[in-house]
Design a protein around this nucleic acid. Structure first.
Lengths: 348, 348
DNA sequence: TTGAAAGCGATACCAA
DNA sequence: TTGGTATCGCTTTCAA
């Protein structure tokens, strides 16, 4: 809960347009016109006003402008599951940089992968009258969905491609990306395959990748013999110990598919540390194509997605919509399977 | 520039407190009291109002509340250089999560390490009447400093510890952390040492680490024989090719100190790829202690800083100040040198 | 327990 | 080229 302002009232030392106008000896309407560069005043008047703006250090109160109702704000609410995951940090970077070039600001919400957190954040951020919202994920609570519909502002859902979005959507088809990897791994000769990921309380993109993966593997004659969903964050160390758990309970595993590259690196390090040869003894595949891959001698088998571009595209769609342009409501930015060298493509 | 609202006026479909009050058959003051849980109304009235709130899907307009002048907003402006650098992503995560528990929101600004970007962002974000600002770095343009002083809101400068901050400061002493590493490397026997980092247009923490490092190395009888400051981002691949450049021009280098762990990993991979033994042939030291270190078999020599905690602390100081508590204006969260195994501590 | 009126800072609209 | 007045949604203050 926001506290009452401690020092009586913070506006006490803030300069308002009225004060600028008075100091310049004009009405506040004239001062307003000068500041908005609207025209319809003499050069002499303009100078008088600007002198006082500088002298008094006047900063406009944009709250009042929006409140007056003639403009929307330049806030864009942006929900992100967590920033410990590098890919989301990149998405946010893409969004915020692009928004910045249009003079808009991100109001951040970290939802920790829960719909309840997202709903709470949506309620709050809507009360600040944002110009639009960019949300990670296509699943929202019923109440959240209702609020979003009622808000009457543009919404871009990112990450999962959503063929029937609330409004607009940009991302990739995660099911397909999992499917492609499954098909690839079986095609090079793997049969007994394991999975290591994390579980969240809600359906999400990683689950869809797993679903696609299983479907492809089983359809092609392989088997996903063990699926490990840890109650942890999807980072390096869980990939490490998850691999240990997996190999203890299913030592026949020939290849492991991970929720993302960070977990895959953890798994790779576990295997290497145990003296296993990758890919000779065991294959490893991740997802996301992290920047660190650019310096690894052994290219991680993965799936490339341009996270930065995804964020930029989301911001661009938002800006286009806000300026009244027609915007396709569904944009697939695509992915690319990276064969890499952590799976053995010569098993046949 | 924010465009004029395309659809006439977005408020058209928004429900105001007045409408709720009318529907409930009470005055808007009574409805306001109910919504603020202020007391001073009958239970029957409360029910009538809340029924209409639900029925109409009323969401308060917090802009109007702040504007009315009785409260400050729950915005905290947060400036971060870039999110491609994992450590800053962690800092932001720490800030935003902690702010969230107090019902505050981060308004993000990515400054790309330039003071001009920061100044522009400060001007904009101040116009939205934030409750406070959290800024990365202790250096600001003259105009930015003036605006910050005039704003009359709490400011926390993070990252570099600032003994005479604008208002509050939390971070570490980067000079000291560089100094400690320099002293350590010489103490284990290195003499000809190189540095690989990036250059920015402004003074920054990495520069201070380098300064501290050089002072310690030279004071202890070693020499920083080559300093490479690339015009690039401080990530994996620049660490890789920067190392190549360094070793070509100064093949006698015994040990390399990097701006951060990501660059150090890049360098490590370069050396390993070239058949150099680390630390047998060359030593490698980074800064920051990235999460990936938790799964590496060879512990990277580095300097640990709790980035998440730094962010949390900054948010806590902000919240404490906003609730009127006394807050120390300078908090050192400390660092810890990690000897690791990418330098040889048995050279003597 | 309730309500009417003033006002926050800026802009639209109309009048001079 | 200027300025007065109403207005946005809400809360404070004062009155009933």
């Amino acid at each position: 809960m926001p506290p009452k302002n401690p020092e009586k009232n913070s506006k006490s030392n803030k300069v308002s347009l009225t004060e600028v106008a008075r100091a310049a000896g004009v009405s506040k309407m004239t001062a307003s016109r000068v500041l908005r560069d609207e025209g319809g005043y003499s050069e002499q008047t303009r100078i008088k006003v600007m002198e006082q703006v500088d002298a008094l250090g006047y900063l406009p109160n944009r709250l009042a402008t929006v409140f007056a109702g003639d403009q929307s704000s330049t806030f864009i609410g942006v929900s992100i599951p967590d920033l410990g995951n590098e890919v989301f940090a990149q998405v946010l970077e893409g969004i915020d940089r692009k928004l910045g070039t249009f003079g808009y600001q991100s109001v951040l919400g970290l939802t920790q992968h829960t719909l309840q957190e997202e709903e709470n954040w949506i309620r709050t951020v809507l009360s600040w009258q944002p110009a639009g919202l960019i949300l990670t994920g296509r699943y929202h609570s019923a109440r959240a969905t209702e609020m979003l519909r009622n808000a009457g502002i543009p919404v871009v859902e990112i990450w999962d491609l959503n063929s029937s979005p609330l409004d607009m959507s940009v991302g990739i088809n995660h099911f397909d990306s999992g499917f492609d990897m499954g098909r690839y791994l079986v095609s090079v000769g793997y049969r007994d395959i394991g999975y290591v990921g994390t579980s969240h309380d809600t359906a999400n993109a990683a689950t869809e990748r797993l679903n696609g993966f299983c479907k492809a593997v089983e359809g092609a004659g392989g088997a996903v013999i063990k699926q490990l969903c840890l109650h942890d964050t999807a980072t390096y160390y869980p990939g490490f110990y998850g691999t240990e758990q997996l190999l203890v309970s299913a030592p026949e595993t020939e290849c492991v598919y991970y929720q993302n590259d960070a977990m895959a690196f953890g798994g790779l390090q576990y295997c290497t540390g145990k003296g296993l040869d990758v890919p000779g003894d065991i294959g490893i595949a991740g997802w996301g194509d992290l920047p660190i891959a650019s310096v690894m001698s052994k290219r991680l088998t993965s799936c490339h997605v341009s996270h930065l571009k995804l964020g930029q595209k989301a911001a661009e769609m938002m800006m286009a919509r806000l300026s009244g342009e027609a915007v396709p409501n569904c944009t697939d930015i695509g992915f690319r399977l990276i064969p890499g060298s952590t799976v053995d493509n010569s098993r046949h």
